[in-house]
């Protein structure tokens, strides 16, 4: 009677360890191995979009750290379950034990999660405070949600008119080489390597101003001005989508931020908020290939 029992235990243990390893490695490589969207979602992508601000870099790090933990926990519980299901199936273990208590193990499985949560909470808090604390900002833009478009103003710059950013329909988007449902007819233009304060509010329904690559999502609430910040570390066009239900065109009020070099931004401001034709042309070409490359690099 002893040997079949032992065999079952060994088979179950080996299977459990295998399943745990495969699950963990599978989850982690699949989860972290995906193509990252550059300023917009990747085609068929399954990972966070590529970071373009220090906040998003931190956010990605914390996400990955939590992801290792939760993949490990899932793999562990799955393996344990598989082990138990094989080892203690009716055939292998016809006489059930009557154990209903084991104080030591109960303490362990209460304390261990607490420790893991502490490991998670510390970097998570750091990220939270880093995200929230406005560093010395060098410029301010105001994003106002409307049904259904975004408008941008530059409170510090008198010569820049309000930019009304409407979505492009499918034909226009194709013509301009922008992704449909992400591209707009007027971008928010900001310089690279600059601390930008963003004020977000709404004039009617709630909206949410979102740029995934920046790690920003800030609700636009009527009567309240929320503030957040970003510092784009590379040039390019970055897209986002309204992320708080705001009515029928909720899916159709994208956000488009064009991060340009400081020199180009200065020219844009000097030009009363217009790129010279050639620059605009280059920018369009740039979006055709995909964001992330600068006009200057080309």
């Amino acid at each position: 009677m002893k040997s079949p029992r032992n065999n079952t235990t060994i088979i179950a243990a080996v299977l459990a360890v295998l399943i745990a390893l495969v699950t963990f490695i599978g989850l982690v490589t699949i989860g972290l191995g995906g193509e990252r969207g550059m300023g917009m979602p990747a085609d068929g992508g399954y990972f966070l979009q590529d970071a373009a601000t220090p906040v998003m870099e931190d956010l990605t790090t914390v996400h990955n750290m939590v992801f290792y933990w939760i993949s490990g926990i899932t793999a562990f519980v799955m393996a344990l379950m598989v082990f138990i299901m094989i080892r203690f199936r009716e055939k292998a273990n016809p006489v059930p034990s009557k154990t209903t208590h084991n104080t030591a193990i109960e303490v362990v499985w209460t304390i261990a999660p607490v420790l893991i949560l502490l490991f998670i909470a510390v970097p998570s808090m750091q990220l939270l405070y880093f995200q929230d604390k406005l560093p010395e900002t060098e410029m301010t833009v105001k994003a106002v949600g409307n049904t259904w478009n975004w408008s941008y103003t530059y409170p510090d710059l008198e010569n820049i008119d309000e930019i009304i950013s409407n979505p492009l329909d499918e034909i226009q988007a194709k013509a301009q080489g922008k992704p449909f449902l992400l591209g707009t007819d007027a971008q928010l233009v900001v310089p690279v390597d600059t601390n930008v304060k963003v004020l977000v509010t709404s004039i009617n329904n709630m909206h949410s101003w979102t740029v995934p690559s920046f790690g920003i999502k800030m609700d636009a609430v009527p009567g309240i001005i929320n503030e957040t910040w970003f510092r784009a570390t590379r040039e390019g066009v970055f897209y986002g989508q309204c992320s708080e239900i705001c009515g029928i065109k909720h899916y159709y009020m994208p956000i488009e931020v064009n991060v340009v070099s400081k020199a180009e931004y200065a020219r844009w401001v000097a030009n009363d908020g217009a790129f010279t034709t050639s620059v605009a042309q280059i920018n369009t070409d740039n979006t055709l290939i995909g964001s992330g490359q600068t006009a200057a690099q080309k």
Binding site: G37, Y46, F47, P179, Q241, I245
Partner: peptide
């Protein structure tokens, strides 16, 4: 849908960019 979320697809959208099509 985890993948869609990580890739940035917001909720309550009737239509979405074609990058989200596969999942």
């Amino acid at each position: 849908q985890h993948f869609l979320g990580l890739n940035g697809m917001p909720r309550r959208y009737i239509d979405y960019p074609e990058e989200f099509a596969i999942w």
